[in-house]
């Protein structure tokens, strides 16, 4: 729904502007802009260049150097010596469950907020945005205490519930905007055709808003996959170690000034970062549009 008329007009205006752009930009301008772009690309890509070269280098060092003999040795070692397979499984399970929980909670809440008719409705929206801006680093100590009190430390349930909650305000708000674009008469028609509100939501509204559900699912998964602060305070058990925790631990014990095993850390980093980047870049348009909408909203 979101890629409705707004996008077409934007595309149209793009064409118009391009067509109207003056010919013959001066070569100095072109040179200057390109020089800036080269600097930008170097600045932003060089750290990744190091990550990927080091991961395939049997004795990687802290500086960029192309491995004499590229090898998968580092990857083999993180699985055999550091139980990284377990961490991957844990992460997939936690991020996947978080995603499912978030999609359900967000679909229900976003739809309800979109359809609710109440004088103070805008205040709910503000409250949600307020929560969204609350820094986790400020509440991590209470969250630690709460998780301990509720027995949520060192448990999948704790990880899943907390990660589902972290992204919830933003996702609810995002999804509400998607639902606002689904005309009400569609679900009303379904009610009249004999459906309950819940089934009309599932059969009619959700399929129509499936782009939004896709964005929410993707963002929920990525956020839970990448998040590390809550993992650090919630998990001590080796059995529950996730990818970011494995990476963090290896970084603490292997990296630094003592025993530098950059190759191992880099290999873990690659497996930690690549799914995020791949998923994000594949769905870039949708994700970026969602984020832009988030800033524009209200």
């Amino acid at each position: 729904m979101v890629e409705g008329p707004g996008v077409t007009t934007r595309a149209a205006s793009r064409v118009a502007r391009t067509a109207a752009a003056p010919r013959g930009a001066s070569w100095i301008e072109a040179l200057a802009v390109h020089a800036v772009f080269v600097l930008v690309v170097v600045f932003f890509l060089v750290p990744f260049l190091w990550l990927f070269t080091a991961a395939f280098d049997a004795d990687a060092v802290a500086y960029i150097r192309f491995p004499a003999a590229p090898t998968l040795n580092n990857f083999v070692r993180i699985f055999t010596e550091h139980d990284f397979g377990r961490a991957l499984l844990n992460s997939v399970f936690v991020a996947g469950s978080t995603m499912v929980l978030d999609v359900i909670a967000v679909a229900l809440a976003g739809y309800s907020l979109s359809r609710l008719e109440w004088r103070f409705k805008s205040w709910i929206t503000y409250a949600v945005l307020l929560l969204q801006t609350m820094p986790l680093s400020a509440t991590m100590v209470p969250i630690y205490g709460l998780a301990r009190a509720l027995g949520l430390r060192n448990s999948y349930a704790g990880l899943i519930l907390i990660h589902a909650a972290i992204e919830l305000p933003f996702l609810v708000w995002l999804m509400k905007n998607f639902f606002d674009n689904v005309p009400r008469y569609l679900e009303e028609a379904a009610w009249l055709d004999g459906r309950s509100k819940l089934r009309a939501l599932a059969e009619i509204v959700l399929p129509v808003a499936r782009n939004g559900i896709g964005v929410v699912a993707g963002l929920a998964f990525l956020a839970a996959w990448a998040e590390v602060l809550m993992m650090i305070i919630l998990i001590d058990s080796q059995d529950l170690k996730t990818v970011p925790l494995a990476f963090y631990e290896t970084l603490r014990t292997q990296g630094g000034y003592t025993e530098v095993q950059y190759g191992l850390v880099a290999a873990m980093g690659v497996l930690y970062a690549v799914p995020v980047m791949a998923l994000f870049l594949m769905t870039r348009r949708m994700m970026v549009r969602g984020l832009v909408a988030s800033s524009r909203g209200l």
Binding site: F44, F48, F247, G255, V276, L281
Partner: peptide, 24 residues
Amino acid sequence: LAYGAVLLAWVNPTLIAGFLWVAM
């Protein structure tokens, strides 16, 4: 390309960002 590079640094997990700069 520049747009993609900037975006990549952002979607990359924060922890990795820290680590990459430790090495840099």
